[in-house]
Nucleic acid binder design. Sequence first.
DNA 1: ATCTATTTGTTGTCTAGGGCAACATAATCG
DNA 2: CGATTATGTTGCCCTAGACAACAAATAGAT
Lengths: 407, 407
Amino acid sequence: MNDRQQPLLRANKIGTSREDLRVHNLSLLLNMVHKSVVISRSDLAAMTGLNRSTISDLVAELNERGLIAEIEKPQASGVGRPSHLVTSSNRVFAFAVEISTYAVRVAAVGLSGNVVERRRVVTGMFPRPEAVVSVIKTLVTDIRSKLDKNSLIAGIGISIPGQVNEQDGSVRLVTTLGWGEVELASMVTAATGLPVTLGNDGTISCAAERDFGAGKGFSDIVYIFGGAGGIGGGVVVGGEMLRGTSGFAGELGHMRISDSRVEDNAGLPGTVEALLKREDLLDVLRLDDADDEELRLAVLRSRSPRLNKLIERQIDILGVAIANCVNIFNPEVVLLAGFLSVLFDADDYRLLANARAGGLAGARERVVIRKAELGANLVFVGAAEIAFAGLLADPAGFELLPPKKFK
Amino acid sequence: MNDRQQPLLRANKIGTSREDLRVHNLSLLLNMVHKSVVISRSDLAAMTGLNRSTISDLVAELNERGLIAEIEKPQASGVGRPSHLVTSSNRVFAFAVEISTYAVRVAAVGLSGNVVERRRVVTGMFPRPEAVVSVIKTLVTDIRSKLDKNSLIAGIGISIPGQVNEQDGSVRLVTTLGWGEVELASMVTAATGLPVTLGNDGTISCAAERDFGAGKGFSDIVYIFGGAGGIGGGVVVGGEMLRGTSGFAGELGHMRISDSRVEDNAGLPGTVEALLKREDLLDVLRLDDADDEELRLAVLRSRSPRLNKLIERQIDILGVAIANCVNIFNPEVVLLAGFLSVLFDADDYRLLANARAGGLAGARERVVIRKAELGANLVFVGAAEIAFAGLLADPAGFELLPPKKFK
DNA sequence: ATCTATTTGTTGTCTAGGGCAACATAATCG
DNA sequence: CGATTATGTTGCCCTAGACAACAAATAGAT
């Protein structure tokens, strides 16, 4: 292996030729429109530094390709000719798939982040991959037939509650599903004829928060999620998702922070996930099942001594996890999602104090710790985001497909 | 605060205009030449995808600016006209400064990574910042007078064994020096008239390993360093150093992994640094002082039961730290430096087994764990690297200074 | 209502910079 | 020594963004 060429070859992807420049600028604009939902042309010019005429040209090209739309009524703010407003096209969709412990959910998500046509099928525990693919095929086909025939499909993004090799589109290990190595992307592509992108649920949710939720405007984010299946995470570094070599990065829940022998879902002892369990809260509250909002209410209402003690213990653990992340990543903001946001509400003072105590002087000073924002649609938006990624990166070269299948 | 504009404004720095394209390509080539030390024009063309004629043009511009040199005797490899070899200029230097517990070291480092004119002054424990600045001034001035008068100076890069705010060039906290908040960059600039860049020692060493050492060719690296002053680290994500919001990122030594109450140098309990001390090895070996090579020899020779036990304990701790990093970053390679490389030599089998045991299936599979390569000059090379950063990013716009001071 | 100042969109022209083809050059190979 | 091959060089082309002039659409002043 020529280890001299390796890292340098990667560099040229940034764009060396004039055509790359065009691609880059189209991508830049489409991303801005996408994330802002609506934005004026003059704002686009100001933010990119590009000339008005160039913006006109680029916007026209994106418009021709059906990726954006210009709103008729111009913006009436301040002196001067009002600027045209640009918005994401309402014709472009991606299918977002969430595979969770015992159900598969599918939705169509528009380029502007609007979620339409939600479907859900209960698969039962430990479904076979083939069964899941079949469900996905059915739901996608169904939704596809409901979409306007002028629509354009970017592809399918699938959220996996486990380890995913993003490069080859294979699932590596999902303990909660009982899956080992599964070539899921190619299976779903074969079934639907659409390009498929897989992503870890933590990474996906984090991306959604970054683009449309509590992480908007930040470029260095640590996202920690607590669900029934364990503790997941995602990290944004310099605006980009932390992926690692194969896409396994960001497993904050499996960070070992204690000498405890208690094991997490992956069999690792003393990790955040091993020590911080949603079930423990449910047990103390004598709840069989509850979503996060019910859990939040129950916690805020009850406050029995046993609960208080548990919450203190959980907050202390979460505090250590946050402090470690702060020392390692020096982020602008730490977002807490799922039942971790319940802990935040239960005693934010103790949580912040704890997180600060373990952080180094420099890094802990400016970091903001807050709850995540996006609720039920979070995973859909994030999953669509990874399906849109190719389109957003190269608006001119990415091929969109019609809603009905040809062949 | 307009949180909509924030992240988007950052995006345009990547390069939107045609001039940015030129800057980008010049930077790309200079970086390639810099890291390869010598490289042929045809390789440059192949790796960047740029046309031969464009490479000619760009190389000519870099040559005119005195940043590179073309080697006369052409490369005689294979059929066809031999390609011109390009190398970094031997006229361009940066001053590398290492501030450590009781000494200051300064060297001039060439753009090709050659270290010349080393100097060292013992400052004693807990020197005042003003004293250190004075030493730096003296040494830099001295070296400056020794350099060829055709030389060009890029600036000063300073390695700090503590927390550094890279954005404003201030030191935040260095417990081993007894420093709190120090505006070091501006002080040294005032004393020398040269632009100054500060960096954390772990980050700097990691950058050096990435560019010229054991990390060459990898784009996702975790670097862990063990020294007398504690455990430091650095992380490379997608070829770029992990910096965080203010440059505090990468403090792997202060990651808490145990319930232990033992505190590290920053007063944090149960961290890697708290549990993994070089002194402990020295104590067991009854050594007062030893550099890493002496330590390595002593460890490999002795193997007393007490030492074995200590090493096992240390390896177990290091294994947890590595596993955590693997789960969080999914790197291609983990580099161990300082006395941690001694642990690797003492029992690499146990270390690898330990690191694997704590890693998740996907991430741990392909990761390589190895010793760092660069020795005595490591910090110099890395410190020079941060001084060269501006030049490498914008070869045409960065102003180089003559060796002698004018005024 | 009308005029002015201000901001934005549009149009045509300019230009920088990378691509390309043709040719020159310098090596290896038969 | 010619054929082949890879590379450097030269001149021309083309694309994409900059720029200037003008048109359009608003707010505010009179």
